[in-house]
Amino acid sequence: MPFHLPLAELELGQHLYWRIGNLNLHGQVFLSSWIVIGVLLAFVVLGTRRMERDPRGAQNLLEFLWDYIRDLTRDQIGEKAYRDWIPFIGTLFLFIFVSNWGGALIPWKLVHLPSGELGAPTADSNTTIALALLVSLAYFYAGLSRKGLRFFEYYVDPIPMMVPFKLIEDFTRPLSLSMRLFGNIVADELVVAVLVFLVPLIVPLPVMFLGLFTSAIQALIFATLAAYYIGEAVHEYHH
């Protein structure tokens, strides 16, 4: 490239490694997710510090978000069990949403690392796989804690012949959840990087907006699917 803009470059597979014992950690993912978590915490603490009867500013936005997440969770999990899962689904949604938008909007290139570069934490497959496995654990826990062993009647729901398919589904769910999020975010970053490489000015802008749009939708989809899986696990069958 003839000159360097503060944008992401085509760098896949280069990481800032932190060694802890025998483990190689991707340091840039930790740094950027700590920034995301810090932003979220600061926003929530500021928004709830002086609560008023007529919400203004940050409190207003937080209440809107809470309503939104509550409606999403109630639609998917159902009236009876949704209250326990609002924090989990809300955390997933906000973390993924702020990571995706942070990766696109914050000029990470201004921060120089010894190797690799900062970016959206969700553009690393380790983050998304961890989130997807959390969702798996969550729906098993939801089903087992609410229905006990009757949770397993989900596997034989219409007819017992469904058992192998439902078992396979338990493995494909985290796989598709994690790869969908990871692929979409990496694809957005790559398309922007390729376009910036070809035409550095103005032309990448529409694609950047499309990227913002799809990353918001991906956060919504991840949260919706997590809530849907939990809702399926706690669903009561009436024979």
């Binding site: 598709s176 790869m179 969908r180 990871f182 692929g183 979409n184 990496v186 694809a187 799809t214 939708i217 991906q218 919504l220 989809i221 919706t224």
Partner: peptide
């Protein structure tokens, strides 16, 4: 529509991965 479009798009994204 947006939700289901994103589901279909994720199939191509698997190919991209």
């Amino acid at each position: 529509l947006l939700l289901s479009l994103a589901f279909m798009e994720s199939l191509t994204i698997y190919g991209l991965v």
